[in-house]
Amino acid sequence: MTMFERIKKISKEQGYSLSQLNDKAGLKTNIIYSWKNKVPSIEKLNAVANVLGVSTDYLLGKTSEKAVSNKPKKVDIEDDDVIMTFEGRPIPPEDLELMKRLLRGGRHE
């Protein structure tokens, strides 16, 4: 089974069309369809894997285990090397700043 076929199968199992999955992952229109003939960037594949709740290794056929770790991920909100996302889409910098202020109790620092 190819990566594209695996993505299509899991999407269908979870009740998503490929177009819906594409949107939930925050990708350009119909980009997943282009993966029939080309390999996606790891960032785009990771966005799809996150929406589907599987590992990128599973999508690539490197493992037969669908599940990703249920262990909570911990990151520092101040770490600029981490891309924070919500529902598969990156959180804009201005929203991150607002979140930081709220977490600090409304204080400006």
Rank of each mutant, 00 (worst) to 15 (best):
E78S: 12
G106K: 05
I77Y: 07
T85Y: 04
N46T: 13
I83C: 02
N70M: 10
G61C: 07
H108E: 12
E97K: 08
D81T: 12
F86A: 10
P90H: 02
E87R: 13
L98T: 12
L52Q: 03
E43V: 11
D80C: 06
I42H: 06
N50Q: 12
S41F: 15
H108T: 15
T85N: 02
L59W: 10
G61F: 08
P72N: 08
H108D: 11
R89H: 13
S55G: 09
D80R: 10
V82C: 04
G106W: 10
L59S: 01
N46R: 09
V54D: 04
H108R: 03
S41G: 01
G105D: 12
R101L: 15
S41T: 15
L103I: 15
T63L: 05
K74T: 11
D80A: 11
N46G: 06
V48T: 05
H108V: 15
D80Q: 11
I77S: 04
P72S: 04
V68H: 02
E78M: 15
E43A: 13
A67H: 10
G53N: 08
K100C: 11
S55T: 13
L45N: 03
R89V: 15
V75P: 00
A47F: 02
I91Y: 02
E109L: 15
E94R: 03
E78P: 00
I77G: 02
H108A: 14
T63S: 05
K100P: 01
A49R: 02
Y58T: 02
K62R: 14
Y58P: 01
G105P: 00
A47P: 00
E43G: 00
V39H: 12
E97P: 00
L59K: 07
G106F: 06
E78D: 12
S69W: 08
E43W: 13
P40N: 04
K44L: 11
M84S: 10
K66N: 06
E94F: 08
M99H: 02
L45E: 09
G88S: 07
K66Q: 15
G61V: 12
N50D: 13
M99Q: 04
P72H: 08
L59I: 03
G105H: 07
S41M: 07
L60D: 02
L45P: 00
L98Q: 05
K74P: 01
P40Y: 12
I83A: 01
E109D: 08
G106R: 01
G106T: 12
Y58H: 08
G88M: 06
K66V: 09
V51P: 00
N46K: 10
V48S: 01
N70L: 12
L98F: 13
E97S: 10
E43R: 08
L96G: 02
D80P: 00
D81F: 14
P90T: 13
L102P: 00
L52W: 09
D76G: 00
R89W: 05
I77A: 05
D95K: 10
K73H: 14
L45G: 01
R104S: 14
K66M: 15
N46F: 13
K71E: 09
T85M: 15
V82R: 03
I83R: 01
V39K: 13
D79P: 01
R101S: 07
G53P: 01
K73A: 11
P92T: 10
V51C: 02
L59V: 03
G88D: 05
E97W: 06
N70H: 06
